[in-house]
Computed example of a mutant assay.
Amino acid sequence: MEFSLTTPALLFPAISLLMLAYTNRFIVISQLIRNLYQQHQQTPSRFMRLQIEHLRTRVRLIRAMQAWGAVAFIACTLSMLLNLLELGTWPLYLFGGSLVALLVSLIISLVEIIISGYAIRIQLQGLDRPRGEVKGFDNET
């Protein structure tokens, strides 16, 4: 099998765009947590607390996505470097490792998207109820 320098180079734009998307998600969710926390301090509610807990989980997942994306980027870069130095099959192994790391990052992203959908359903349930109440929840802390 021929393994050229352009093979891992194809992954660079994809990983870069994913890292940018992950960072944007992290920033938006962090800001949302700050806003909800301030609201919760003023008017505590179990509903808001539940939202904050879901967002905390999502932030942890996004950090894991970013870490695995960074590992994929590093492995891809090392693969190109070792390929330039013509070091046998090591570039191929590192490229395979970068693909595995990217796959792990994408799987974690899928989990985060599922949790995000659940959180949105909770939020939409709040539209059908009096302010701050969701099925099974009340405004008690």
Rank of each mutant, 00 (worst) to 15 (best):
L18H: 04
V111A: 09
R63L: 15
L124N: 02
C76S: 13
L55Q: 06
Q41C: 11
R60L: 14
L11F: 06
L55S: 03
L102H: 01
P44K: 01
N35F: 00
E133A: 06
P91H: 09
G117W: 03
L110V: 14
L85C: 08
T89N: 08
F3P: 08
F3G: 15
V28M: 10
L18D: 00
S4Y: 08
I120P: 01
S45N: 04
F12P: 01
A75V: 10
P130A: 11
Q42G: 01
L103Q: 10
A70P: 01
F26V: 08
E112M: 05
N24F: 14
Q123E: 07
T89K: 08
T43F: 05
I33D: 01
F26P: 04
R121E: 12
L84S: 08
M48L: 06
Q51C: 05
L5W: 01
L82W: 07
Q31K: 09
Y118I: 14
G126W: 00
E140D: 11
S79E: 07
N35S: 02
S16A: 15
E86G: 00
L17V: 13
S109H: 04
L81Y: 12
S105H: 03
F137R: 01
N139P: 03
E86I: 02
A119P: 02
Q125S: 07
I15W: 03
P130W: 00
A21D: 04
T7L: 15
L32D: 03
T141M: 06
S45C: 04
S4K: 05
I29R: 08
R63Q: 13
K135R: 15
Y93L: 14
L36S: 00
L78C: 11
Q51G: 08
A72Q: 04
Q42A: 08
I115Q: 00
Q31F: 07
L84C: 06
R129D: 07
A72N: 03
R56L: 11
L102A: 05
W90V: 14
R46L: 14
L61C: 07
M80V: 15
R46G: 10
V28T: 10
I74H: 00
